[in-house]
Design a binder for these strands. Structure first.
Length: 274
DNA sequence: ATGGTGACCTGACCGC
DNA sequence: TGCGGTCAGGTCACCA
């Protein structure tokens, strides 16, 4: 489910929990990619001081440690009234001092809910991540220089969290379309000017998607249970066999790293040999 | 080192 | 109505 804009939307909606304390912890269903109920108990009694984001990870900070949360493909965090019954696939509930509960819900269980006592950014899951796309650490030159030895498709390249974080399947498709780059182009065949366009559109699309509250295709909801609206502006994702909104050519589908990839053969020509 | 594939899960949808 | 197949917003371990 969530790419960077959806995680950021979730984070912004949860800011009201800051300053409250965790009265109780309920681990309803611990089976996730990673969740250790025993260590998580350390959060009980702690005040929630900070809520930050690194890539698609959320970091809920206290004086004693940090809860590291990833929503996987289908996860969501919601603020509910404490007396509200659990829903199927609720995994964790933090009962807060302000009469609300923070519920972690994840049907596919690819998410993660961990307690870290050490510096969270040093954790192996975070320490090798690439730059945040909406910071000055992320530049066209960064993409260009890291791509010189990469023969893999440019779409895989920009979706690799070690290159840049937060660009998932939807926004990779969209950015490549706007940049006029065929998704299968080997990353090392693109020029600096190509990466300048790609960089510009990655930043622009992610920013707009955050403004729209993210993209809801099936089940993304923000912390209040409401959908996002960026899906109304998608140019290629989910539009296989429909007409390109720019040139009317039929959009085509190809699988890149087992992920559906939609592109316009006319706007994103395969002009180099591959 | 790099790149491709399968694995992890459940639910929705489609065709028969 | 039910069954089997396919697909889904992410990431990682494992191979060649």
């Amino acid at each position: 489910m969530p790419e960077l804009p959806e995680v950021e939307t979730t984070r912004l909606g949860l800011m009201p929990i800051l300053g409250s304390s965790v009265l109780q912890l309920a681990v309803i269903q611990p089976r996730l990619r990673q969740l250790v109920p025993e260590t998580l108990r350390s959060i009980i009694g702690e005040q929630l001081n900070t809520l930050s984001r690194r890539g698609k990870y959320l970091l809920l900070g206290t004086n004693k440690g940090t809860a590291l949360i990833h929503l996987g493909m289908s996860g969501s965090l919601r603020l509910t009234a404490t007396h509200e019954p659990y829903r199927k696939h609720d995994h964790v509930s933090l009962i807060l001092s302000n009469d609300y509960s923070l519920r972690f819900h994840d049907p596919r269980r690819f998410g993660l809910f961990l307690w870290l006592e050490d510096e969270p950014l040093q954790h192996p899951l975070l320490s090798s991540l690439g730059p945040e796309p909406l910071t000055e650490q992320f530049t066209p030159e960064h993409l260009f220089s890291l791509s010189r030895k990469k023969k893999s498709p440019v779409k895989s390249f920009i979706m690799d969290g070690h290159i840049v974080v937060g660009v998932g399947n939807i926004y990779a498709n969209e950015a490549l379309f706007y940049a006029g780059i065929h998704p299968l182009t080997p990353a090392n065949q693109l020029l600096l000017t190509d990466y300048q366009r790609l960089h510009q559109h990655i930043c622009r699309i992610l920013s707009i998607a955050i403004e729209r509250g993210g993209t809801t295709l099936r089940d993304f909801v923000n912390s209040k249970g409401n959908p996002g609206y960026f899906q109304q502006e998608l140019m290629v994702y989910g539009r296989e066999a429909k007409n390109c909104l720019i040139c009317q050519h039929v959009l085509e589908l190809v699988r890149v790293n087992n992920r559906s990839t939609i592109y316009c053969p006319q706007c994103q020509p395969a002009f180099r040999s591959f």
